[in-house]
Write a protein that binds this DNA or RNA. Sequence first.
DNA 1: ATGCCGGGCGAAGCCCGA
Length: 279
Amino acid sequence: MNEKLISIASWNINSIRAHLPQLTNWLQQKRPDVVLLQEIKCLELQFPTQEIEELGYNLRIVGQKTYNGVAVLSKFPVQIEHDKLPGLPADDQARYLEVIVEAQKSVWRIANVYVPNGNPYPGDKFDYKLRWLHCLCTHAQNILSYEEKTIIGGDFNIAPQDFDVYDPAGWQNDALCRPESRQFYRQLLHLGYSDALRLLYPKDQIYTFWDYQGGCWPRNAGLRIDHLLLSPQAADVLKDVQVDKYLRADDKPSDHVAIVGKFGDYSNIPNITMHSAAH
DNA sequence: ATGCCGGGCGAAGCCCGA
């Protein structure tokens, strides 16, 4: 049978105005149903709304001048649940946007996160990152109890394991690799979220970010810091994950590439035989 | 220890990112 899949992607675009051609080309080629963007680096009124809407997307934007900023593009009806991270009401940085997407057959809760970078370690920025992650874990636990198809996706600014880093020794005191940061990532997994990429590719070295500096891209000096975390109900219908590495070779690329998850309507487990005394 | 590269801002050079 040919099941229609829903595709849900995340991409740190590193300024939507600077990288709009790369984004629109990709949208036209891949036609993802839902896209989580981070680092749009603009106010809502500066967002290229018309160009995106013309491609068939509904838009929800949490903007900020110059820095940060997140947006959700959706081919399906979408409504905002939270435009700030619950627990951090005074946060003046645009880093969180949680929406409900009503797809044809299923409803999805999708949280778009741009976790603070946290460098340098130690320092105030690192402390802010840990506070932010603490609140994210608390909220992630709350929404898990809804037992919905939920995705927490975005730029986590955490490389979960040394294997996700081209030079672990050189990065061991970076905020992206510090044990304190990684502990919060594991906490999300322990709550019951699954790392979508690792569900399907448990042993492959796959990066999502290559710094512009130092020839990182040509020598494949990358990190895996962009993730899709899935509630059990979402993980159960995960069909495919792709990291669009080719994007990093474009002219004028973002320094991140997109990660795309594809989901079906039915569990991946074709048959569950229950032990029963009834026969 | 710092810069590398690249974007924003704004019109030079600094702040920020990862």
